[in-house]
Structures are given as C-alpha cells and as structure tokens.
Design a binder for these strands. Structure first.
Length: 435
DNA sequence: TCTGGGGTCCTAGGACCC
DNA sequence: TCTGGGGTCCTAGGACCC
C-alpha cells in the first residue's frame, strides 16, 4: 500500500538530528592520528568499556563488555582511560561548527544535537538535504571524525533517521516516506518508549512504530498520557517538541555517586567515600549558585538493592561544613554493620537559587557569606589532604542532638528498598557561627 | 546489557483551604 | 457534625533519557 496516511508536505519543519559516531574513541583518534583505523576503547578506569571504535566493534567489542573479555576478543586492543575534558572540548567545537550554519542548535548531550533548519533553503540556495550534508561534511573537515545525520519533520523522526544508518550515515525522510520508516521501526527504537511502555503496547498487539501511529491519538493519550500523545504526533510528522536553544545553566537536582571495587563492610571507609561525594556535590551546587533543601544518602549493596534516607533541611544551605553532621547522622541510620556495600550516593533536591533574598538581615548575610568562604577553603584543603582533615574540623561545629534509640529503630524500619520509599525528616539545627 | 554516573518530566493522590 | 463541590500545592514514585 503506497498510500500514506500522514502529512503530504515534504518538510513542514526541517529537523536535523546529528549524532557523533563512537564519540569518545573518535575524539581519541582525532587527538592521536596513530590510533586511526585501530581498535580503540575507553573506560580503562572502570574495567568496563564505555565506548568502542568501529574497528573494535567489528571484532565484537561493545559497550559494557569487561576489559578482560574485550582483550580476549580482540588481541592488540588499545585501551584508554576516559578523558572527559577533551570530550567536552570537542563537543563544544562540534556545536560551534553547527552554529556556523544556524543559531537554532540544541545541545542535547555531549555527542548529540538537534537543529531546526526550517526556512533556510533560500539562504543557502539548496535543499534541506544538501544543507544537512554540508554540515556533516564540515564537521568531518573541522574535527576529523564523522557524525551520522537524520533529517525529517520532527525530533522523534530525526532521531530515528540518524540511527537508521551508522556510522557516517545520512538518512532523510520527507513527509511522503514517513510511513515506510515507521513500518521498519520496532517499538523499542522509538525515543521515549522504554521497556515498560513497549511491554504494554505489545499486549495490545502492536509491534512497530507504524502500528502505534495507526491507532487514534486519543487511544495513545489515554493509555500513555501526555508522552503518548506527543510521541504519536511527532512520529506522524507533526513537530510538537521544539528545538531548545537555551543553554542549560541550572539544575533541579544534583547527585554524586561512585562505585568501589571490591565491595566493603568497613564503616569508616564507606563513610569516607560518601563524604567525598558530598563534597563534590556541594562544590557543583556552589558553582551553579544553588542550595539544596533536601538531601538523600543512599548506600548501594552488593545485590544492587539499597539502603537510603532523605532529610529535609530547615533552611537551604550550600555549605558542606554545615551539613556534614547531618550527613553523619543519616549515615549512622542507614548503615548496617556486616553488610557489604559497593557504592555510596548523595542526592540533592529542591535546589534553590543562591541569590534569592532569603536573608533580610544584613548581619545574617555576612555570616552566611563568611561561612561559605570557610567552606570553600575547607573544601580545598580536603581536596588536597583527604577527608580526615575535614571531618575533624567538622566536629567542632555541631550542637548536635543524638537521636534516641527509639528514633533510630524507627528509622531502621524505614530503610529503602527498590520500589519502596520512606522519608524521615531531620532538621539542621540553626547554628550561630563564629568566624 | 545483570546495573556506571548523571539527569528530567509527568501523574496520582493526599493535605489543606474555601 | 455531615454533605458537597472545587481549587491549589506538595510529595512520592514511575518511566525515560544519555
């Protein structure tokens, strides 16, 4: 059936999705030309492959494979540690090449972007396909690695297109061919359909993206709510997700976690790991002028379940020092002796802007600022000399009320397991601070 | 993908108010 | 004290993304 039920116009909107091919290893190969054409992987620090070059992929070395297995699969494999600073630098360069063509660029992730080039044919005196190819070629020329490009009528379709052929792919699907693309697209390949949605849709007898778009929009909306309605439109070529050019300058939440091998039962060791995460989370918050109103401490066990606790702060703060006693209290309540843990995590929620006029007393403002400076200094020291210095300094502050045994018992019962959350409130005592 | 380190958005339901 | 209608805000948790 050649009849297509969707939009007839070629490109009511022309949306590009650009996806770098094997980005991390591509950057490594761009930085060191002797690596080109060779099987390269990154992720040495974790022992698990984070990114594999196409040469490595050709030999069965994929993301997530252990280095041990990878070396067996591919003798002569070149293993590199991740170098996020270089990746971030190349990422910025890649986006700036795109911006030479249009300001309407959304930096979706370190290696992906959406571009809206609607209405630019006149400017470049050529078709959307040709503009897209020019951008693709320019990135290759400027940066020395390849990207895959998808061109279609919406972000969801653009994404499908760029995935369709890789590496160095170029896939353009105008309105009249959308149905063919969708017929070849399994539900799980649709952006926004995860395992649980695919599961649900399968129960209704759906297999492809096309099947989904053949149901009435109301059906999709009733079953999958807002996302379902939007994905339905996007897949049919009606763009409802605009390309967002606004730069990200803030966060709704911040989390820091780190896995350690081997797992440990050593209480102080585990606490030290937690403190390290707390410090880097707070440093990040301060960098963005944010203060959390809520903190979560989570310890992940070896079987990947976790124990956790959340605390609401009586006042938002960006001071590591101020919060440390609370962290200790939470840790004490979450930690089970003898239990093996493999990672710690700190979660910050309810982030508030640091500039809000919360303090109407000038004096308060001064004290808080001074405290912040001290915290910064301690962070530095901590960074250089390790956590113990900070911990002892911390204990100097702290009119801390220990919890009664009953409270602790109560808290124990509220430890978190997957699919089950309990919250418990703890307040930071308001402190008089002498600086 | 037997689980790395981040994040976001959405919805239902309860609390509280008139 | 009960019944009824309606609104807003917040929270918990699910689902998804790279």
């Amino acid at each position: 059936m050649d009849d297509h039920p969707f939009t007839v116009r070629s490109y009511p909107r022309a949306i590009l999705h650009i996806d770098a091919d094997a980005f991390f290893t591509s950057v490594e190969q761009a930085l060191d030309p002797s690596l080109r054409g060779k099987p390269v992987v990154t992720g040495q620090e974790r022992g698990i492959i984070a990114c594999a070059s196409y040469e490595a992929k050709a030999r069965g070395v994929k993301r997530g494979v252990s280095l041990h297995d990878a070396r067996r699969l591919c003798p002569g494999l070149i293993v590199l540690p991740s170098d996020y600073e270089s990746y971030s630098l190349y990422s910025k360069r890649m986006f700036s090449v795109m911006r030479q063509f249009t300001p309407c660029v959304e930096e979706y992730s370190v290696d992906e972007a959406f571009l809206d080039i609607t209405g630019m044919r006149r400017l470049y005196h050529c078709s959307y396909e040709e503009i897209a190819r020019k951008i693709q070629q320019e990135i290759h020329k400027e940066l020395g690695f390849t990207v895959s490009v998808g061109l279609s009528l919406s972000k969801a379709l653009g994404k499908l297109c760029s995935k369709f052929r890789k590496p160095r792919g170029f896939t353009a699907v105008p309105g009249r061919y959308i149905h063919i693309l969708l017929q070849r697209t399994a539900l799980e390949q649709v952006w926004g359909f995860g395992p649980s949605t695919v599961n649900l849709l399968t129960k209704y007898g759906l297999r492809t993206a096309y099947d989904f778009t053949m149901r009435p929009q109301l059906w999709a909306a009733n079953l999958l709510k807002k996302p379902g309605r939007e994905i339905w439109s996007e897949l049919r070529g009606e763009s409802v997700w605009p390309v967002e050019t606004e730069e990200k300058t803030t966060y709704g939440s911040i989390m820091k976690s780190k896995t350690f091998t081997p797992p440990s039962t050593d209480k102080e060791f585990i606490f030290a790991k937690l403190v390290k995460n707390v410090e880097s989370a707070f440093m990040k918050a301060r960098r963005y002028h944010l203060r959390p109103r809520m903190l979560g401490v989570i310890l992940r066990r070896q079987d990947f379940r976790h124990d956790g606790l959340e605390a609401k702060l009586s006042r938002a703060t960006s001071s590591t020092l101020e919060v440390m006693p609370l962290i200790r209290t939470m840790f004490e309540q979450v930690f089970y002796p003898q239990r093996e843990y493999r990672s710690t995590m700190i979660f910050m929620g309810g982030l508030e802007d640091d500039h809000s006029d919360q303090f109407d007393l000038f004096e308060d403002r001064l004290k808080i600022d001074a405290f912040a400076r001290v915290t910064g200094a301690i962070d530095d020291i901590n960074h250089r000399y390790g956590k113990h210095a900070v911990r002892s300094a911390t204990s100097l502050f702290l009119p801390h009320k220990p919890d009664s045994p009953r409270d602790s018992e109560h808290a124990r019962k509220q430890l978190l397991f997957p699919g089950e959350t309990a919250r418990r409130r703890l307040n930071i005592p308001r402190m008089g601070i002498e600086v």
